[in-house]
Write a protein that binds this DNA or RNA. Structure first.
Length: 611
RNA sequence: GGCCGCGUAGCUUAACUGGAUAGAGCACUUGACUACGAAUCAAGAGGUUGCAGGUUCGAAUCCUGCCGUGGUCACCA
């Protein structure tokens, strides 16, 4: 029972009878009526005047009279300019409520047995997860829930970037300076432990570099440089080259990388040791965020893949080889550049690996759709990747989607490792939880719960606050994360929505199992009508969220519903109402809670019974 | 500099993808708790939707050009 579809159907019928319009494809727009006008739903008639050959007002009058006379659910209409406002009849409200009791929360947008793969998180294994990862993880998780709700089989995956120079830096620093320390011996979470050695490496390297800058060799390089007279900026831009050509630490780290690629036993064992520490740390963080994965791919297993792709691409003439043996693809006809896909020494580059991984995943799951949740700094990379896939004719090429999201910035600007402004995921959760506990203690009311139940409620509120804060903003926008504001539990927040449900639980608990009167003839107050209309729009919201890969639409829905409920709660006494009224209201808030819980579940947020 | 995003109240943001007088939250001012739970509600103030053109019945939304801002332009990942 979709009201807007219903209106469109009537409008088409009216157009046919009144104006002999046969075009059933004609696109009509129906909105919910704005609050300042009478009515529940509004049909925009401006585009129809070319058929009616009369003014917008007259056309709307004609359509309104036609529909109200014949339809049972609309009892009145009014016209403002070219807008036809239709009002639902008194009798239809309880019918719609009855309908909502059994209406499905899920929809089906998928082909039979259609699988979609969602990649998210995808961390480097040399340091802990931070705020940026949190946005990624929450977006990815909610996306999987939304696709499941739309009938897809979903495979949650990530690629662990577990090899490369970064982890080698941590390995080397640990080897040189740790003196055998472990996460267990120091009481440190594994990923933080390894991260500390990465930071230590960078610090030692900086010290080494500073010392080197005053050597004769460095000074003569500075004098020879033409593009920069200022020593500070010269050495800043020279750092990479220093690392690669002069640095002792750099040379050692690079030798680790080479030995790793050669399968050197000692280095591989060290690498495994550090990574295992990191994974156990990540697992804790994922666990406290309430997320998990079906399948993890490791870069160390896949980074050599993709070469067969390059070969077929060469055979098909899609790629070409330069004299130095490097392989390239020309994407200029698609508005992109020429891009290298294989180095002159025959080794893979980043994109080669992604080509191979996509193919591997397709072999594993036959998913014709793959969603990559990756920050927008890689927009260009994914354009190139998808374009290459198309050229290669991969059967899943059209189903590849980059769910690009904006950077998370702090009020002071972008997070910078150098300046120590990176917000650690675990620290953030702890701080927010402290705030939640202190608010709850001040507010009181949970004293009779045992410690375990109380802890669970605190966790639910903490995660509700964090997840809602991050998911309410449209993914592609950069967002400003204000730690102070994020722990605010009032206003446009997760706890505000949770509180609506908690209030409903409280009423239902107090009412108990007593029998309820017949409510089928009751007509709700305005705030109740608002709730019914909102719930009726749910399937459209879910549809749009899925089509646009956008959890923020679900977040906005739940907030709207909670806000309308809080008003209803204020306007409509329930336990003190007459039996018939009471029964209607109990049913209404039962349904509201169902929609609140379900929409929040799609955001990855659970709702407590008390808070 | 080329290419790709993004500019909405002091701050954080929404607007059903072209529809009515641009909605909310925070902060600010004011009112409502011997209560179905005040993590709430109600009211006030706050806007030339970066600027200038264009497209049409109608533009925050589409087009063009500026301005600001971020990202990206490696045989790094």
């Amino acid at each position: 029972m979709e009201i807007s579809d219903n209106i469109i159907k009537w409008a088409h019928q009216a157009l046919k009878e009144l104006y002999k319009v046969e075009d059933t494809e004609l696109k009509l727009v129906v909105n919910e009526t704005r609050k300042d006008f009478d009515g529940d739903y509004t049909l925009v008639v401006f585009p129809l005047t070319k058929y009616s050959k009369s003014s917008p007002q007259q056309t709307a009058e004609d359509l309104g009279a036609y529909i109200v006379e014949r339809s049972e659910i609309f009892s009145a209409y009014n016209v403002v300019k070219g807008f036809l406002n239709l009002s639902l009849s008194d009798a239809s409200w309880s019918q719609i409520l009855a309908h909502l009791r059994t209406a499905g929360l899920e929809i089906n947008l998928a082909d039979a047995d259609e699988t979609v793969m969602v990649e998210f998180s995808s961390p480097n294994t040399n340091k802990p997860l931070h705020l940026g990862h949190v946005r990624n993880i929450l977006l990815g998780w909610s996306t999987t829930k939304i696709f499941e709700a739309c009938g897809y089989n979903v495979v949650k995956t990530q690629i662990a970037n577990d090899r490369g120079i970064a982890i080698c830096k941590s390995m080397l620093a640990w080897k040189l300076f740790a003196d055998g320390a472990t996460p267990a011996s120091t009481g440190t979470k594994g990923d933080h432990f390894v991260g500390e050695y990465y930071v230590l490496f960078e610090r030692k390297l900086r010290e080494e570099y500073t010392t080197w800058q005053s050597t004769d060799a460095a000074q003569s390089l500075l004098e020879q440089s033409t593009d920069s007279s200022d020593p500070e900026s010269f050495f800043k831009s020279y750092k990479n080259k220093y690392f690669n050509e002069y640095s002792e630490l750099g040379a050692k780290a690079k030798s680790y990388l080479q030995r790793w690629e050669a399968g050197d036993e000692e280095v591989v064992a060290l690498w495994k040791q550090l990574n295992s520490w990191v994974y156990s740390g990540f697992d804790e963080t994922y666990d406290s965020l309430g997320v998990d994965f079906d399948k993890i791919y490791y870069e160390s297993n896949t980074y050599l893949r993709g070469k067969e792709f390059v070969k077929t691409g060469l055979d098909n003439g899609i790629f070409y080889q330069k004299e130095d043996q490097s392989v390239w693809v020309d994407l200029e006809d698609a508005g992109l550049d020429q891009k290298i896909v294989l180095r002159s020494d025959g080794t893979s580059v980043y994109i080669t690996q992604d080509l191979g991984t996509a193919e591997l995943r397709y072999q594993d799951y036959q998913a014709k759709r793959m969603i990559y949740v990756v920050a927008n700094e890689q927009d260009y990379h994914f354009k190139v990747l998808f374009e290459i896939m198309k050229k290669l004719g991969a059967p899943y090429a059209d189903g590849l989607y980059h769910l690009s999201y904006g950077m998370v910035e702090l009020p002071s600007g972008r997070m910078k490792t150098r300046e120590g402004t990176v917000v650690d995921a675990d620290d953030l959760l702890l701080e927010m939880r402290e705030q939640v506990v202190s608010n709850a203690v001040e507010k009181g009311g949970l004293e009779d719960l045992d410690q375990e139940s109380m802890d669970q409620v605190y966790d639910q509120i903490t995660l509700g606050a964090l997840k809602f804060f991050m998911l309410k903003v449209a993914a592609k926008k950069n967002m400003v994360f204000d730690p102070a504001e994020s722990v605010d539990l009032q206003g446009h927040t997760g706890p505000y929505v949770q509180n609506a449900s908690v209030r409903i639980s409280s009423i239902l608990r107090k009412y108990g199992d007593k029998a309820r009167a017949d409510w089928s003839r009751h007509v709700p107050i305005d705030a109740g009508k608002e709730l019914i209309k909102l719930m009726l729009s749910w399937q459209d919201v879910l549809h749009a969220a899925c089509k646009s890969y956008d959890p923020s639409q679900v977040a906005n829905f739940s907030y709207q519903l909670a806000k309308s409920f809080h008003k209803y709660y204020h306007d409509a006494p329930i336990l003190r109402a007459e039996p018939e009224v009471q029964a209607f209201r109990l049913e209404l808030i039962t349904q509201v809670q169902k929609y609140l819980k379900y929409s929040f579940d799609l955001l990855g947020i659970s709702i407590p019974e008390r808070m």
